[in-house]
Write a protein that binds this DNA or RNA. Structure first.
Lengths: 242, 242
DNA sequence: CCGGGGCCTTGACGGACGTCAAGTCCCCGC
DNA sequence: GCGGGGACTTGACGTCCGTCAAGGCCCCGG
């Protein structure tokens, strides 16, 4: 890839990312000059757990799996960072060792900032700090929500996860003029069921059984990684019951 | 209380709080002029859940209980904010409805900032934004840690909680000159066991049994709200095992 | 064509823990 | 002093779910 292409990449990374949305295009271009691109293939690590990295990364394309290893040796998947999302905040802010291992789930392109470069940017453009605050606040709210839900039964946590997923855009392959028969929303799981189970704090076996129960209740149908939500309000009702 | 006293209160609140530690004393005094003091007695609410409050509060003295109510109606205690800690970030940052109910656990004095006042302060003093970032990053790391631990058995979560508590300063009431007999560290639970159980995502009954098991194992002794750590390394070993 | 490994599912089993209930202790108000 | 209520503990019970095991399916490499 010629140099010019790479540079365009860097700029488009900066342009597309919420973190810098408060800047003018000219300012964004200046930011782009500081960024270091990083391309990883599936399975490669951005950083291991316990490393001392003060760099902050923004996902450009692809997905990065963030997972913790407990003292007991058990691993738990915490979240998956997709395009526009950031990782490495903790090391960037505190200088302490990284708490999570970051592994590319697919081929992934990152935009990496060194601590000093980004700190200088933040000092010059306070809007970046404000945007980071909003990001972190959002992450914190989401994590607290998951923590509050962690004691609910597996079926409920699975139902909640499904309701949070983006729906597939349906190609209307049936007769287009036919009347008001509502189509059930469908979605595609973007992670393996094993990984989803880990995020939800359970096991693949329990997850599998939960999906089977939801299917038996007529709430969903499962076809490999495609889930059809037959009764979305029924799924929501699970959250409220008991 | 005369006006002059109140004003001193406001300033000392600002002085003591990490959020403003990056400011000079003169700047801190200016911040103090913007603060609105709020005194609550035990049981009073700073705000309920779902309210729309964009104000950010700093605890001056006392403690504030932050709890969520799940759609099912179950309440879960998320954290307790003590002196120097902040609450209301989510509303302040997003303008959305409050997610947690905030209730004074004891007589509590707060320093409250309106959204606009604090936003203006942040714009003028970026160090405040940086300190908020560090605070939120810390909170996020702590919450993620608890989430990762949420599937461990109750005994382990209780042990971890105990190890996180500040120790009592021991008054050496025994013969001061006696040799190197190490005293076991002791701590005082600052919350009811019921509340601690809620924080740990379990029930008072299970918590009580966990303490009984830790006692039977010779790791601790319990005397009402005072816990003696007979074998701290044994408690830590619980975290790693299995 | 065959063999291995990963993902997923289903079954069987046991244990941890939530729930219900009863009982004690303590505090507080009448 | 007495009664009520809340915090805490202990017991009994049921169940959700984690673990172990086996089997199917798919993919890939030999």
């Amino acid at each position: 890839m010629p140099l010019r292409e790479i540079h365009r990449d860097e700029i488009s990374c900066v342009r597309r990312v919420p973190l810098f949305s408060g800047l003018t295009e000219d300012q964004q271009d200046l930011v782009g000059a500081l960024v270091r691109p990083l391309v990883l293939s599936a399975g490669e690590l951005v950083h291991g757990a316990g490393e001392r990295s003060r760099r902050l990364s923004v996902v450009h394309t692809g997905q990065v799996k963030l997972s913790r290893t407990l003292p007991s040796g058990h691993r738990r998947l915490m979240r998956v960072a997709g395009p526009g999302q950031t990782l490495g905040e903790h090391g960037f802010l505190t200088g302490g060792p990284t708490l999570e291992e970051a592994e590319a789930l697919t081929e992934t392109r990152l935009c990496v900032f060194s601590h000093d470069d980004l700190a200088a940017l933040v000092a010059e453009h306070p809007s970046i700090a404000l945007q980071m605050l909003r990001n972190l606040g959002q992450r914190l709210a989401e994590t607290e929500r998951r923590l509050a839900q962690s004691t609910l039964e597996v079926d409920v946590r699975v139902a909640d996860y499904l309701l949070d997923q983006p729906l597939l855009r349906e190609t209307s392959d049936s007769a287009p003029a036919t009347a008001s028969s509502a189509v059930s929303p469908r979605l595609r799981l973007r992670l393996s069921k094993k990984d989803i189970a880990s995020i939800l704090g359970t096991t693949p076996e329990s997850m599998s059984r939960a999906l089977a129960r939801l299917t038996a209740s007529g709430l969903i149908t499962v076809d490999a990684d495609v889930i059809t939500l037959l009764d979305a309000t029924g799924l929501e009702a699970l959250l409220a019951q008991d």
